[in-house]
Simulated scan of single mutants.
Amino acid sequence: MTATAHIGISGWVYPPWRGEFYPRGVRQADELAFAARHVTSIEVNGSFYALQKPANWVRWRDEVRADFVFAVKGPRFVTHIKRLGDIEAPLANFFASGVLALGAQLGPVLWQLPPDLGFDEGLLDAFLARLPRTHGEAAALARHRDRRMSGRTAFALAAPPDHGIRHAVEVRHPSFDTETWRSLLDGHHVASVTADTAGKYPRLDWTTADFAYARLHGDRELYTSGYDDEGLDRWEAWVRAHLAAGRDAFVYFDNDVKVRAPYDAMALIARLAR
């Protein structure tokens, strides 16, 4: 199977984008469809802050073309509040919330760890081992949801049970820059996120899975600075190197403050189309 580049934005609901990226007159309800016509993938980040309603996942799936892929950010309740401990029910609740309705359009699940969570080999090994690797495994896990999810669940499969689920982890503590962490990721076939954070957090540009995942938060100023031609050329080379090695590449621009993300994503897409 030919490796594919999935280039897009992290989230799509940003008021400052209205009248800029989103033309005046585009309804908020139509913003996803508009954005999906201009990028090749979108990272859902609302799922990081709260469990989404089952109807949301179905609506998002139906608003984009059939080959469009969503990456999905795992809940901060797992990563930041529970800090990866005692998470069987929270993981079950997440997969029971409707995300499996995306079916084959579900791309990697992103797990962003907090900057004050240091590397703990046992904790991380156990976490990676718990992650479901197929839609069937995720549905089985979802059955262990807790009672508060009653009436809010939807985990009927929209893809074959053996359809794979990929996972990627973004770390923000310097103690993760170790061969032990790299080996753990490699052993669990989980991608190490290459994060461009203007030097604020570690940049671990490792290949630990059969796909690559990058989050571009800004190369000079976090969440604010755009990418000039030189910067985009570097990321074009990064994507092409992974594609040449047979790996899918997922790249999401998260420099949203000054409405740079969608334009930078479109510029990278245009470069890769040459």
Score class of each variant (00 low, 15 high):
186 D>H: 13
230 E>N: 12
210 D>T: 10
9 I>P: 00
88 E>G: 00
76 R>V: 00
257 V>R: 14
101 A>P: 01
132 P>S: 03
139 A>S: 13
123 L>K: 14
253 F>L: 13
265 A>M: 01
1 M>V: 10
48 F>V: 09
99 V>Y: 08
68 F>N: 14
50 A>F: 08
39 V>L: 03
165 I>Y: 06
136 G>D: 11
164 G>L: 13
9 I>F: 07
182 R>T: 05
229 D>Q: 15
114 P>N: 09
129 A>T: 12
245 A>S: 02
77 F>Y: 10
254 D>R: 05
7 I>H: 01
238 W>R: 15
65 R>I: 11
257 V>G: 03
42 I>Q: 06
219 D>T: 10
264 D>A: 11
34 F>L: 15
231 G>Y: 00
2 T>G: 02
20 E>D: 15
112 Q>H: 08
49 Y>R: 06
213 Y>H: 03
102 L>A: 12
119 F>W: 12
15 P>I: 02
112 Q>L: 14
113 L>F: 14
130 R>D: 09
173 H>L: 08
29 A>Y: 05
58 V>W: 02
242 H>V: 02
273 A>V: 00
130 R>T: 08
86 D>C: 00
186 D>F: 06
96 A>T: 14
98 G>E: 06
271 R>E: 00
57 W>V: 04
242 H>L: 01
81 I>F: 12
176 F>A: 11
260 R>L: 05
264 D>M: 01
231 G>E: 04
233 D>P: 01
258 K>W: 11
246 G>R: 05
170 E>Q: 11
202 P>C: 09
5 A>V: 11
235 W>G: 04
274 R>Q: 11
67 D>Y: 04
